[in-house]
Amino acid sequence: MEAFIDKQLFQFVAAASIFIFLAHRLLLVRKYLRQEYLAQKSVVDQINSYLPQTQCGRCGYKGCLPYARAISRGDAINKCPPGGEPTILKLVDFVNEPGFRLNPAHGVFQPPLAAIIREDECIGCTKCIQACPLDAILGGPKLMHTVISSECTGCDLCIDPCPVDCIDLVLLPTPKPRYWLTPKIQNSRFNTLETDL
């Protein structure tokens, strides 16, 4: 009789311990996956913060966040023309990859632009409004449209859809000329010594 009870007790304890073990493992795995996910997310966020957020899509992705995801999975870092070399330099520090020149297939680096609608010629087709990734164009059907210049990133996505070609990309007037300039080094001998730490 005693042996029987012992056997039952033994089975119960064994089953319980196996269950606890498995449950613990499951929790560990879940925690690990969660950490991985958060790490991945923070990496993507970090990369995204280095991108210029013009949302122009010249990298081949629909916006800066998808491109940041692609970089975190190993895509090339030289596909962002609006960011240009400064963005590549920042990303090189982060993803530990050798630096590349900007890939000319995606476009060339240029100073910041902004779109302006020639309002007399606008027919109010709303096609540019649908194309704008930042909702920076105001207007209604058959009514004149206009660009909110403070929100425009100069991504040029509104240029192609316009049926009457009434949108121009213009150079942003620089708000303030540089007041203090870095001194020009007259002694070219010392130029190369300290510029790369």
């Binding site: 957020q53 949302q55 800066c64 966040l65 990734p133 930042l134 929100e151």
Partner: peptide, 15 residues
């Protein structure tokens, strides 16, 4: 300004 753009883009996508 890029933070502002990012926020606007996120809102655009949400919408």
């Amino acid at each position: 300004s890029s933070a502002q753009w990012k926020q606007r883009f996120q809102y655009h996508q949400y919408r």
